[in-house]
């Protein structure tokens, strides 16, 4: 979230001395700012991660937007509208943070629309019932918070500052989702069944949100060294499971995992195996809604083109008028 005026080519400084100084700054918990020297690989890793994160926020508006017109009450509708609006704002904060690294928003949007950029696998699942809105707030936003809180201490200043803002707003999302689940779980048998069905469908995809298991995660090592990432995928996943199982019990719902058990020795909940093939399939574009999501983004972008063009044309005309008056 800084001006990019000074983002000059830095590669010529890429000697080991500069790299050494950079690592010392990282070790000293200093924040790296946009115009500071940084290794090209660090810049690339951040652009990739922050832009994917931004895309996820924007695509994430689609599954929930699906229920705005059918929310069961005005209170629920107002909350859902506010939440979806927040997600759009989060996308903006993150695109702005990525832009400080020398990539334009237009470029990032183009990467998303052309299908070259990835976004969180979770948003390729459909929202079939109102209970899915509850499950998304409770579980998807819950998992996102677990992931994002350590990112508030990320070594890259603009990313860390964006995350602080996002985390502050995100806790409303999780609470409103849990409240929806609680209302359904305490409602009629049909409503409770609807809540259980949503949990059944979202549980495993949500566990996959933390990414591949540690032994198979290719970007983790550098990311940890540079303090972009503070905890491994498996560590965060475990934290989430431990926090969520008691919440499901309070709702009187059953986690759809017959192998789920509490290990009294470690104090952790242990789950059955995660179907990583499903994860890779969804990420590769073969999830239930991949095509639909991208088509919706493309449509919105294309149909909004005239607004962007008109706004720019108007601004240019106004500027011209002022120059003419001055002359």
């Amino acid at each position: 979230m800084y001006t990019q005026a000074l983002n000059v080519v830095t590669e010529k400084l890429g000697d080991s001395e500069a790299e050494q100084r950079f690592l010392e700054r990282i070790d000293a918990e200093e924040r790296i700012e946009p115009n500071d020297w940084m290794p090209e690989a660090y810049r690339r890793l951040l652009i990739r991660q922050i832009s994917q994160h931004a895309h996820s926020e924007v695509v994430g508006m689609l599954p929930e937007g699906n229920w705005i017109t059918r929310a069961p009450s005005l209170r629920r509708k107002a909350a859902l509208l506010a939440k979806v609006q927040d997600e759009g704002g989060h996308g903006l904060y993150l695109y702005a943070a990525a832009e400080t690294l020398g990539i334009s928003r237009e470029e990032m949007v183009e990467q998303l629309l052309s299908g070259r950029a990835k976004y969180s696998s979770i948003f390729n699942y459909p929202t079939l019932t109102w209970a899915d809105i509850g499950a998304i707030g409770w579980l998807v936003d819950g998992a996102a918070i677990m992931n994002q809180i350590p990112l508030c201490r990320c070594s890259y200043g603009p990313y860390a500052r964006a995350m602080i803002r996002i985390c502050r707003e995100e806790s409303f999302h999780q609470r409103q989702g849990y409240e929806i689940m609680l209302t359904l779980a305490r409602g009629t048998p049909e409503q409770k069944a609807m809540a259980q069905d949503a949990l059944n469908r979202w549980w495993w995809p949500v566990l996959m949100m933390f990414g591949p298991p540690d032994h198979a995660s290719q970007h983790s090592e550098a990311s940890m060294r540079w303090k972009v990432k503070r905890f491994s995928n498996d560590t965060l996943r475990q934290k989430f499971i431990d926090a969520t199982v008691p919440q499901a019990q309070f709702l009187g719902l059953t986690i759809p995992d017959p192998e789920l058990r509490f290990n009294a020795e470690t104090g952790h909940w242990e789950t059955g195996p995660i179907d990583w093939e499903e994860f890779h399939r969804v990420l590769a574009g073969y999830g239930p809604c991949n095509k639909e999501r991208l088509a919706a983004r493309r449509k919105a972008h294309e149909e909004g083109a005239w607004v962007r063009e008109a706004a720019l044309a108007y601004a240019a005309k106004q500027k011209q008028r002022i120059t003419q008056q001055a002359a």
């Binding site: 979230m1 001006t3 609006q85 704002g89 903006l92 803002r165 706004a311």
Partner: peptide, 21 residues
């Protein structure tokens, strides 16, 4: 933070929508 807008008026409007919710 920052944002993109065609002119000052739209920038102000967007800033209100995004940063003062």
């Amino acid at each position: 933070g920052s944002l993109h807008a065609a002119d000052a008026e739209m920038a102000l409007q967007a800033a209100r929508d995004v940063y003062t919710r």
